[in-house]
Design a protein around this nucleic acid. Sequence first.
DNA 1: TCCTCGAATATGTATATACATAAAAAAATA
DNA 2: TATTTTTTTATGTATATACATATTCGAGGA
Lengths: 234, 234
Amino acid sequence: MARTSQQTTWQSVRDEVLRRIQSRDWKPGEPIPHEADLAREFGCARATMNRALRDIADSGLIERRRRAGSRVALHPVRKATLDIPVIRIEIEARGETHAYRLIECALEAPPPQVAARLNAASGQAMLHVVGLHMADGKPYAFEDRWINPESVPEALTADFTRISPNEWLVLNVPVEGGDITFAATEATAAEARALECRPGAALFVTKRTTWRGEARLTTVRQLFAPGYGMKTLI
Amino acid sequence: MARTSQQTTWQSVRDEVLRRIQSRDWKPGEPIPHEADLAREFGCARATMNRALRDIADSGLIERRRRAGSRVALHPVRKATLDIPVIRIEIEARGETHAYRLIECALEAPPPQVAARLNAASGQAMLHVVGLHMADGKPYAFEDRWINPESVPEALTADFTRISPNEWLVLNVPVEGGDITFAATEATAAEARALECRPGAALFVTKRTTWRGEARLTTVRQLFAPGYGMKTLI
DNA sequence: TCCTCGAATATGTATATACATAAAAAAATA
DNA sequence: TATTTTTTTATGTATATACATATTCGAGGA
């Protein structure tokens, strides 16, 4: 029976559970009461309690297992969700103007590392697209991309002088999954020239490979100009 | 009425919706049918449909608004969830041995930048803890931390030679939220000495500040040895 | 003692129903 | 026409109920 006046929301229940964990009423590693008991205590339906606990479990603070119950995580792995936007959107969101300058676009044999990431024989030719993202005319990110023409044949006819491959792919190629690595690297001479920084400067770099099913679609390495930081909340 | 034989699970419904988005049956920017209609089509309850669509919305592929309905996101912001484990756990998960070497632990006035991050007057003394995480005896991460003694008075009596501040804080101080920044930086002479790398080497760096309510608890800068990469799936 | 197997149980999920709420659209008003 | 108010509607959520399923636990057998 839903009462108009005072509903128990799953958020309020979640917050109270979080409070008990934070205040160490329920200590790390210890089990917490069962859904059903908690539901009774909070005066809500078990479904509501379930929603609250599931949300907390998603955040990594409790661990739940069937039949075994729920317990406060011993090593609460902090989970940060970071948004990986299309670079143009990222730049325009800061009120700056985006431009993409194509540096190279050719069909060629990739280095072994790249071939491996694309699950291809090392002799097989791939579409190599190199370019520079600019924000308000200043170098923003250097992008070195390899596209697998077996998985994305349309890419061979795309005009990357008009649209960045980044964006073309988002619009034209459905992606199922991928992996990303964040790291730091020193600018090579060519990279330094493009990004207008000193050779050897420390650059933030992201490497991404995306796939659909078994097919490797593309792998890209983006080098950001010095000063770039990726920010997120936990 | 629950049928034993063939239940419609929210996962199966979600997968079919995902398929329609990937196959461009439903195009970016376009609205998709209403929950109720879809539920009828898939032969499931609206609650089930809701669960499926909510899950997709969480992943950033569709946008939902009350009364306005759901539409395929125009710029699907890829969301990557990255786990930020305690360093010791991270190292031990790779089968290596973790050790922490305390380099400095003193109460002193922080630089203005740090004071600002901790919402404190720049003259106010903070606990400064500097140390090095080692994996199998090799330098892994250099950690420069400031702890606000007003928010975390117990830290003044903690023995950071026996336990890393990282871990001590996880065990003893409930955290509500925080922000993280990932970037690249060049090793200073002192940092290079600690990490046994060349001065000026490009290092991956994370900066974190955590809080509870209004209280700023701690801010930390972790420099990882060359070669470190943070990996995640999307 | 060790193993197998069935009972018990906490979480996971599907469903019908009812109401809440934001926001768009329509109607009423100035 | 411009502005305010009301209505409409799609999503958001609470609830009771029923069943599904992974594990644990204990009993019984080898």
